[in-house]
């Protein structure tokens, strides 16, 4: 269980998170929705320790994430970045197997390559892709490689940052289906941030709406359409009228 209590983060005068409270039960898929610039990515980076919160507490299985041993903590996570964040200087298979090739328990290169190719196949890519460089791939293929990297070390928790941004609807659907399948088959805890409602309906068990630095509503994805919250209603209908200012 990931638990956030009163998490605050400001950048100079910009108060991005103003006291976020959120629970993500183990083995469930939580999707955080909210407009652009509302702090969804900052929230995710706070959990991973990439950004240090100014106040509040974040726990993973009742342990404060700031006090856990960093490598062991990060070894439990996989992450798909918005732009895939593949390392340009490494071929695809080394990107996928990056974690497996590092540290004291690193795999022999041959075994790591086999695992990378297995994961590439899992996300629908052929083994020929393994020796290409990221710049030689399309955006959709890069996202799949990023997904393969996120699952390569078989983590307990996977974060997805805007997984369908910049993809055409068909490729976005493919990525959504892959995420749902992987989350179900691996039994992982997943946290996705997105403003793509198709993704939300495809991926989420639970949904939380982040606005003005706080969680405005949270509940099961099945109740999203009858949440009764004006912010959620405006967001899912895409209306300019409502409590969320259209021009921010």
């Amino acid at each position: 269980m990931i638990r956030l209590r009163s998490v605050c983060k400001s950048f100079d005068d910009n108060h991005v998170l103003r006291g976020v409270d959120l629970d993500i039960p183990q083995g469930t898929s939580m999707v955080i929705i909210g407009g652009s610039g509302t702090g969804k990515s900052v929230l995710l980076k706070c959990i991973l320790g990439l950004v240090t919160p100014d106040a509040g507490q974040i726990t993973l299985d009742d342990e404060d994430v700031t006090r856990t041993e960093r490598d062991a903590f990060l070894a439990r996570f996989g992450m798909l970045f918005q732009g895939a964040a593949l390392f340009d200087s490494l071929p695809v298979w080394q990107n996928v197997a990056f974690r497996l090739l590092q540290g004291r328990d690193r795999m022999p290169a041959e075994a790591a390559r086999d695992r990378a190719i297995e994961k590439l196949r899992r996300v629908g890519l052929k083994s020929e892709v393994a020796d290409l460089f990221p710049a030689e791939l399309s955006g959709g293929m890069q996202k799949r490689v990023g997904l393969a990297r996120a699952i390569a070390a078989e983590p307990e928790i996977i974060f997805f940052d805007e997984p369908t941004t910049g993809l055409d609807p068909i490729m976005a659907g493919v990525i959504n289906d892959l995420i749902r399948e992987i989350v179900t088959e691996m039994g992982v805890t997943a946290m996705t941030i997105t403003h793509d409602m198709t993704s939300v309906r495809a991926i989420a068990d639970n949904v939380a709406m982040l606005h003005d630095g706080v969680i405005k509503w949270t509940g099961p994805a099945s109740e999203l359409d009858r949440s009764g919250d004006a912010h959620v209603r405006q967001f899912i209908t895409g209306s300019a009228e409502g409590p969320i200012e259209a021009v921010r």
């Binding site: 980076k45 991973l48 320790g49 990439l50 960093r70 490598d71 990060l74 070894a75 996570f77 996989g78 992450m79 970045f81 918005q82 732009g83 964040a85 593949l86 390392f87 340009d88 990056f98 974690r99 590092q102 540290g103 990297r149």
Partner: peptide, 12 residues
């Protein structure tokens, strides 16, 4: 392009 963040999440 968040590659530095990716390195950190990969325990590097």
């Amino acid at each position: 392009t968040e590659q530095i963040d990716a390195l950190v999440t990969l325990s590097t």
